[in-house]
Design a protein around this nucleic acid. Structure first.
Lengths: 211, 211
DNA sequence: CAAGAAGTTGACGGTACAGTCAACTTACGG
DNA sequence: CCGTAAGTTGACTGTACCGTCAACTTCTTG
């Protein structure tokens, strides 16, 4: 089945691409708070055209980051191809955090008050692969047995603000934070945890709401 | 030496207090992005009065959080009164994170794009005490030897977004994240770190700019 | 209890942004 | 190459916010 139900007119497609490109660049550089007017201006079209293609702000964000789920899936697959289960986990988390560090928009998306990204099938697949990564690392005895997939959100959230804060002065600082966190995730480091892990549905709620 | 250079008029003092109280409550509940108009409205005064007392947004924020440095100092002193150096560190960090969790305004202040909080002498004292806490824990052999005071920023930044994200669904989730991070800070968990620690002046830059 | 100093008011001007729409322009099928 | 559907434009409305100020009110002091 082909992608488009309605084959977009030539100029319309061109403008759509220009808008997504402009939005992508502005988001990457300055986060998701860029005004829609500025995106239209940067793309060289009028604001009306923007609203024509993307009625809601979320539509534009969705279009810009549509491929990101696929990128994450690729990272996960690359990681799973590695021999050592622990290295696999480390490699995957590093890649994710690099993505956050390289794109402020994506960093925001991770859980800022963003007008709702719709959960695609790519997300589901990424979720499955991440589960594999975690389970493999845990079964190998390298990852502590009391952490869950949901705990990985702590890595992401933890990195998120550090990336923002240190972007200008020390853009690699998050690597140090991640390394400290990883040392805390090793089975050999395990001490009892105070709070039960988040349930999958709780995490889904959190991702969805972002009040 | 008394506090005031100019003894404020009675009603002026009352309005000032009302404004600070209103700002404090709104900040705590919704973060630092509350509009100045709303603060004035909540306090029951006109916007002109607000600008009269606090010409700049930073002045108001400064007034609201003037006592926070003192609170941190108290926490540090309480912690240092404890016997076990490791417990001392844990206790202190938990208190700080509890502060973040209880007050969205403070959580923002930790390093959001905030219009500059002026560094007071209370800050300096807090800094000194924190240094003591770290050194004690390190000298005792409980805290890994390759972490510095500046690394504690990772704890704060890490907690910051987690608190935001989980506030509604799992307000205590940060405790689990903190516990994982603490396990990574133990000497027994130490693996080589990839990035050199932030220098004090770098961290100061980061806190100051918040571009 | 004056009288002026100190403080307050709320309407006002300016700016930035979201979103709409009638008039115009362009592309495409026949 | 023409007619129409598809798409674009940019001015416009509405809203929310910051910050100012001249006229007004309240406190204080002698």
């Amino acid at each position: 089945m082909p992608t488009r139900a309605k084959p977009l007119r030539k100029d319309a497609q061109r403008n759509r691409d220009l808008l997504i490109k402009a939005a992508q660049e502005l988001y990457a550089a300055r986060g998701l708070d860029v005004s829609l007017d500025e995106i239209a201006r940067t793309a060289g079209v009028s604001s009306g055209t923007l609203y024509n293609h993307f009625p809601d702000r979320a539509d534009l964000i969705g279009a810009v980051f549509a491929d990101r789920a696929g990128t994450v899936v690729r990272f996960a697959e690359q990681a799973l191809a590695m021999d050592d289960p622990w290295e696999c986990l480390v490699h995957f988390l590093e890649r994710i955090c690099e993505l956050q560090a390289a794109d402020r928009g994506y960093n925001d998306l991770v859980c800022r008050r963003v007008p709702q990204a719709p959960p695609t099938e790519g997300h589901v697949r990424g979720y499955e692969l991440m589960k594999q990564i975690i389970e493999r690392a845990r079964d190998s005895g390298a990852l502590r047995s009391d952490v869950t997939l949901e705990d990985m959100a702590f890595v992401t959230w933890g990195t998120a603000r550090t990336v923002e804060a240190t972007a200008h002065v020390r853009p690699q600082a998050w690597r140090r934070q991640l390394a400290l966190m990883l040392d805390g995730l090793r089975a050999s480091a395990a001490h009892p945890l105070p709070e039960p892990p988040m349930r999958p549905d709780e995490l889904a709620d959190i991702m969805r709401e972002c009040s």
